[in-house]
Design a protein around this nucleic acid. Structure first.
Lengths: 207, 207
DNA sequence: TCACCTATGTGTATCATATCACAAAGTTGA
DNA sequence: TCAACTTTGTGATATGATACACATAGGTGA
């Protein structure tokens, strides 16, 4: 794995957008694309796109553009995005179950290996093993770094437990507040906050 | 409503974080807070918090801090966030139904007034009226600006239709690509992309 | 009431990000 | 093969965001 020397944070946040677009284009049979075209597609300035790509090496050809397949495989190699990230899910309520049955994981980021819940016996039939939340230590998959958090009780305690067991990134569906050390990344997913952002932005647009 | 003269984009994106934290504090009976404390709570520099608040007026008192209740009501007044935003939901599949049954809307942002689907008769029993997607024109609630998009077919066509009928903000749960005019705001909500961000960030942290 | 003390609000500096502008590389077509 | 043309990759620059530093306001306690 090559050293990806300080890629700007803002760039890092755009990579998933590019990747999604490129996969879409690839599935439409497009094998070659220019920054200008991609720009129109994802609504990001072409010069920003070129700069973003440049952090991963010299990927394009002058007067030609970029090769879609190559670009996608570079993303995987350089950014360490395999298709085999081992993910755990914590909290198998309605939302948790919906996420377990969601079929877009494989060959995109990896898979949910197992889930943990306070009442695993209540979860019912799902395709993924569900263990008691106290078993996080024993049942944590080898090399697992990312957890999806859907619990509603004992949140801080659960988070501490996850971190002790090697989790460094959390997708947070919780509505509780919790704190983590500086080296742990948390990404909130929250429809209500998203709607608020929309309200604020649309209100402040008309001055 | 006062003119909120060019609040930075970055600030606008932090307001929902503050609001969520303040509501939480309020429900814990806390009536007064200082930027330093809030800083520790939300992990944003206190000086950034003070600057962010300053765009909304002179809200604090020197040597004292901020009044939690006042802060929350200022957010509502200045940013036009009532508790009565009329939201529609388009696409009443599994996800759409889950969102309709989600109980955190009221008195936070507003409510889902109605839903639209290609097969409204198939949706089954829900607490919110479901109309055929062709009725968007007739059934669009008065003053509705925000739509939650959960469809998987005819995405671009549906989006165009929404915009024609006054929608200016879209919460996008779709996995399809679509384009919108510059004045329309789209906020993607996508677990897979969120996980990718986590993978990229955690990989590039250890240099 | 008065003096001290604390936390805000903001001018200014620093840092990060986006955009401009163009040289260099490589493709395409004659 | 060669010249014209296109698009990349990147220094330089402009814009935007964050952090610093401190004057000022106003609360607090004697």
């Amino acid at each position: 794995m090559s050293t990806n020397r300080n890629v700007p944070k803002a760039t890092l946040q755009r990579y998933p957008i590019y990747l999604k677009a490129l996969r879409k284009l690839q599935s439409n049979g497009i094998t070659r694309i220019m920054s200008k075209e991609l720009s129109e597609y994802v609504d990001i300035e072409s010069t920003t796109i070129r700069r973003d790509f440049s952090f991963l090496g010299t990927l394009g050809k002058q007067g030609y553009g970029y090769d879609v397949d190559k670009l996608i495989s570079i993303f995987n190699e350089e950014l360490g995005l395999g298709f085999d990230e081992k993910i755990i899910l914590v909290g198998a309520g309605n939302l948790g179950k919906a996420l377990m049955n969601y079929n877009r994981w494989n060959h995109v980021v990896g898979e949910i290996v197992c889930a943990f819940d306070l009442f695993p016996e209540k979860v019912g039939k799902v395709a993924i093993p569900v263990y008691h939340i106290d078993e996080i230590g024993e049942k944590m998959p080898e090399g697992c770094r990312i957890a999806i958090l859907c619990v509603s009780q004992n949140v801080q305690e659960t988070v501490n437990h996850l971190i002790e067991n090697g989790i460094v990134g959390i997708v947070d569906f919780t509505h509780e507040h919790f704190q983590v050390p500086k080296n742990i990344r948390v990404k909130p997913v929250d429809v209500v906050s998203t709607i608020q952002e929309l309200v604020f932005e649309t209100n402040s647009m008309n001055k």
